[in-house]
Design a protein around this nucleic acid. Structure first.
Lengths: 110, 110
DNA sequence: ACAATACTAAAGCATCTACTTAAGTATTAT
DNA sequence: ATAATACTTAAGTAGATGCTTTAGTATTGT
């Protein structure tokens, strides 16, 4: 559907804001309404709605409205993709350090 | 020194741009000069410098100038912190799913 | 019916971001 | 000494971001 690159743009951008990370933190505990998410944040409800829109656009969160209540929950797939991008690079970095250490060991008797 | 929150703001913000992720990707292979980093990017050198400034401000990259050449390298600590933030939430999410599944199992004979 | 609740839409505004071009400053090569 | 290299600084700009306030619209409780 979307390029991995575009997914990561949106995911990391969404996670770059402390209010949005707080919302994710809350949703990790389980589903919550928009008002639930807004309660701990020092911000107007429309402000929270806009953060929610960013989280939904990134695919990190999905929501559904029943009656007058919108319930939000985490969609962990994108979270995994972001984690995986970083983990992969850390692994490459460490492999490179290993090779470097090995090389230094092998050549230390010159 | 800095609040974890502020570190994550800067780290995720830095990773939210594809040019900057490309620079990180390059630096994972090993140190590189500013020109090295600029080469694959369709962008002016000052543009690259600005991305580099964002990466350095986040602590993801450090650089040192020798003569007229600035050499950049990855500083993996912040990368780990970003990875850890996500991993922790994924773990919590999965533990919650487990508990939920267990609860459903235990009550399925009502 | 009427009020209260839970969002939602629209518009405004001060930054911030991601570039650009133009004009530097050191360093190194010839 | 001169020229080429490798950044660096400054200024400008279009568009995005993170709020706000005001004014809605459904839905639910009394």
């Amino acid at each position: 559907m979307f390029r991995q690159d575009a997914i990561l743009d949106l995911a990391f951008q969404a996670l770059a804001d402390p209010s949005r990370r707080a919302m994710v933190d809350r949703l990790i505990q389980g589903p919550a309404t928009v008002s639930d998410l807004a309660k701990p944040l020092a911000m107007s409800l429309p402000g929270v709605m806009q953060h929610l829109a960013v989280l939904e656009a990134s695919g990190l969160v999905v929501s559904e409205k029943v009656g007058r209540v919108r319930t939000c929950r985490i969609e962990p797939k994108v979270l995994s993709q972001a984690e995986h991008w970083i983990a992969e690079r850390r692994a490459l970095w460490e492999r490179r350090l290993d090779r470097l250490g090995q090389f230094l060991d092998e050549t230390k008797d010159d």
